[in-house]
């Protein structure tokens, strides 16, 4: 028993030490959560203005974070000014290009070559994302970059900050088109700009989430030529179905505020006469189950069908040649 007690003491001590060592970071995350919600992204963490002792600790922690990031090879945090400068130049160039293309092509917005970035949660990682990427790279002069992260979205940006990541990806790949899909993990309590928490059952949740979506759209619609916002497919899950319907409504209504954001209604497209369909045919006539067992993620077959639908929509805008 003495041996066990020794082990217990070591475990508890180690946990306490690790927790304390990480404590300022936790505090910082909580503080940043509120600011991120409204002011989009605070990319430069050095700018936290606070004269208190906690500010000193935070600065030390930031320094430590940079060292760890350097070791891990995590990309450096980009300064907000640099982004603004570069993106305004890019924006001008892109707008000119869009105008020229519209004149030449008539209704087609894009001519080749074209750069596409696909990003979002696990739907982009498995099933839908890989299938769309596969169909896109079959086209000539189309470069695609796809990045999905499990368990992420626009809600828990304390956990993974898609605002910052999108900014970094735009910087790195300078895409013409963004294809995004979020929300599978967003159906949980949310913090507003003041740090007030709202449960999913609270009608105010929709307002807060709407602002998150609007912020994302406002920020990035000016940095690419077009954003295709993919909505959730129909789900019978008593847990996810109603959440997805609520979120889709928000994506749709917010996208209408932007000329270059198109909401893609997958709810309808993955149903038959508005009703849930377990199995659907793909273009080649193969019939298969479209949803994985969780009724959230799509199967390979379901992903292929979603990708085929999106390719049709993209074909309206892109002159594939």
């Amino acid at each position: 028993m003495e041996h066990d007690n020794k082990i217990l003491l070591v475990i508890i001590s180690a946990l306490v030490i690790v927790f304390v060592a990480n404590f300022p970071a936790s505090i910082k995350e909580i503080r940043e959560l509120a600011s991120k919600a409204e002011e989009r992204i605070s990319l430069t963490q050095e700018n936290l203005e606070d004269n208190s002792f906690s500010s000193f600790i935070m600065k030390l922690k930031n320094l430590e974070d940079r060292i760890w990031n350097k070791i891990k090879g995590v990309e450096p945090i980009i300064s907000e000014k640099k982004i603004a400068k570069e993106t305004s130049n890019e924006k001008e160039v892109k707008e000119e290009k869009v105008e020229e293309e519209k004149e030449v092509k008539g209704e087609k917005i894009f001519s080749l070559p074209i750069k596409i970035v696909m990003l979002g949660d696990s739907m982009i990682m498995v099933g839908f994302g890989p299938n769309l990427e596969e169909q896109l790279i079959e086209k000539e002069q189309v470069s695609v970059f796809r990045e999905g992260k499990f368990s992420t979205g626009l809600n828990r940006i304390d956990y993974f900050d898609w605002y910052a990541r999108t900014e970094a990806l735009i910087q790195e790949h300078t895409p013409d088109i963004l294809i995004v899909m979020f929300g599978a993990n967003d159906g949980q309590g949310i913090l507003d700009e003041n740090g007030t928490a709202f449960k999913l059952s609270d009608p105010k949740w929709d307002e807060v989430y709407q602002r998150r979506v609007l912020n994302y759209m406002t920020t990035f619609s000016s940095k690419v030529k077009k954003i295709y916002w993919v909505g959730h497919p129909i789900s019978l899950s008593p847990d996810f179905g109603p959440k997805f319907a609520r979120m889709n409504k928000i994506y749709q209504s917010e996208s209408l505020k932007f000329q270059n954001i198109e909401y893609i209604d997958m709810w309808k497209r993955m149903s038959v006469d508005g009703k849930y369909a377990s199995a659907l045919p793909s273009k080649d006539g193969t019939i298969g189950l479209v949803k994985q067992s969780d009724d959230v993620h799509v199967t390979e077959h379901g992903g292929k069908i979603m990708a085929e639908d999106i390719m049709e929509i993209l074909s309206e805008d892109i002159d594939w040649k």
Binding site: V10, A14, I17, V18, N22, W68, K149, F150, Y159, F160
Partner: peptide, 22 residues
């Protein structure tokens, strides 16, 4: 025991910090 706690804590902390956000 004291050094064991310190070394184990340090190793745990390094692993956590080297680990990913997700």
């Amino acid at each position: 025991l004291v050094f064991a706690v310190l070394i184990i804590s340090a190793l745990a902390y390094i692993i956590i910090r080297l680990g990913p956000d997700l």
